[in-house]
Amino acid sequence: MDGSGVAGEVNAIVIGMIGMFFLTLIIILFVVVYQRKLLKQERKHKAAEEAHQLELLQATIESQEVERDRIGRELHDGVGVMLSTTLMYLDHWKEEDEEGKARASKRVDELLHETIDSVRRVSANLRPVVLETLGLAEAIGDLTTTVANASGLNISFRSVYDHRLSQPHELNIYRVVQELLTNALRHAEATKITLEMTASADRFFLKYEDNGKGISKDQLGQKGLGLKNIESRVNALNGKLKLSNPSEGGLLITIDI
């Protein structure tokens, strides 16, 4: 056998083996480096997600404090003042003559009625009676009518509510709609609002659309307290929130649970 031929064959095998070794090393190195890179990305994503959740939580807490502050002021400035005035009339009751007593009696009666109305308003705001007694569809219908009458906006509401949700779910969605309407009144500069709601056994869908100024990309990135509240509530319901500016203008928000 030709010696150089044998040596050539042996060398080819050696080169092949060493080549495979280096190929293996490249694969192993790639895996280690790529795994580190993926891990870094995942950690970054997780940190961003946690920061976002914290932001939502802070927004929820802030919103609750604002609400408590408002209720506190309403009770102090409204109910508190009326009850104090009533007490003052009752304190001077004995000193009055018959005519004075009649006037005081009438005034106390008016004040107590105003107090009761004020307490009912605060209570209804805390827990809407319509929601508890007639359900979500009627409560939202009632809310849209009230807002439309107060603001002059054209608000249309359509619903297919075949499957009633649990009370906590209904309250959350009611608050979301309240927030949407509040946002529209404060920021949207819209004249027409459309709300559609459908609920079946396995899906709840809410669509909000207005013809206002919409939402910019910056505003999408840095959401205000209202939108963060909505997002927080939708997350709590394991739902998906989508915000977009339709081609014809305005704002479109869909909530899918």
Partner: peptide, 25 residues
């Protein structure tokens, strides 16, 4: 095993070669 693919792929050929000549492998 990656290097073994090459080695044993030529395994039957290597048996015919003197050990002295194939020692590097």
């Amino acid at each position: 095993f990656s290097s073994s693919i090459v080695l044993f792929g030529f395994g039957n050929r290597l048996i015919e070669i003197e050990l002295v000549d194939s020692i590097s492998v």
